[in-house]
Design a protein around this nucleic acid. Structure first.
Lengths: 141, 141
DNA sequence: TATTAATTTGTAACAATTACAAATTTGAAA
DNA sequence: TTTCAAATTTGTAATTGTTACAAATTAATA
């Protein structure tokens, strides 16, 4: 949540088995400081000015790598966009269908007992809600 | 859950503000009797023998219409496939990443108190888990 | 420094979905 | 009935997000 230094990011990646590189550090840094659940496009557009040779494929590859190594989670709310979140703690996502903002909310599905799933191995938990956020509700005069 | 007659389906669609037509009834019937959370492709392939002029666009349109009128829900678990479910009651989905089966599980997120979302209007609730199902766990000898 | 491995890049392919206009069907009014 | 308008379906083409893949670059090792 707090801004991490480059060295802290390098160490964090390393701790998760990911070797640091400029694109990786920059992408992680962007994800970590922009807790807005950005899409691949947003990340690519934000970084391509600074990393002038950055390829969108690299963004895809790197995000896949992050997800695989639990440095980030993929957030699916709409069928046409994958979003990413550096916050890997268990929580839910609420998307306002008016302003498109994705909010976090406190909810840990993994700590809920689900008898129906007894015997299965549960790997990753996802919870999301769509609706209209407070701000947009109030703006409808 | 129990198999519906064509007349029952027609009435059900009508009750939700959707006029009946052959493709609509057939698509609904397929969804209702195949609680396997099929993709657009599966539905199209299953029906195109009988409805020989059926277009994939119609399947897309019809499913969108069903979702809009709460006759079905869209199930997103992977970023490359939208699935559909005629069971509109609140429940969760568990996908086995080995055999690809999508299981239902009893869980009603809408009845859970989420203080963080106070003030927002919540429209639709989604819960899914990925993992490896019992059957696949046992098959790994 | 030379060689190999890992990473990044760019292009092309791919797959799911949507746009859209033409064709067909339906339903109501004449 | 027949006619006309509206709704629905269809097929094609476009679009979008993602992936495959091989070449180029960079990093690591001998």
């Amino acid at each position: 949540m707090t801004k991490m230094s480059v060295d802290e990011i390098k160490k964090h990646l390393g701790d998760h088995g990911v070797k640091a590189s400029l694109p990786r550090v920059k992408i992680y840094e962007y994800l970590n400081t922009h807790r807005t659940h950005p899409t691949v496009d947003e990340i690519f557009n934000a970084l391509s000015d600074e990393l002038i040779t950055l390829s969108k494929t690299t963004v895809y590859n790197t995000l896949d790598l992050f997800v695989k190594h639990h440095l980030a989670v993929q957030v699916l709310i709409e069928d046409n966009e994958a979003r990413y979140d550096a916050d890997t703690s268990h929580h839910g996502h609420f998307k306002c269908t008016k302003c498109q903002t994705v909010y976090d909310f406190d909810f840990d599905l993994s700590s809920t007992s689900i008898p129906t799933l007894e015997g299965h191995r549960l790997d990753d938990y996802h919870t999301y809600i769509r609706g209209v956020c407070k701000k947009c509700l109030e703006n409808i005069h």
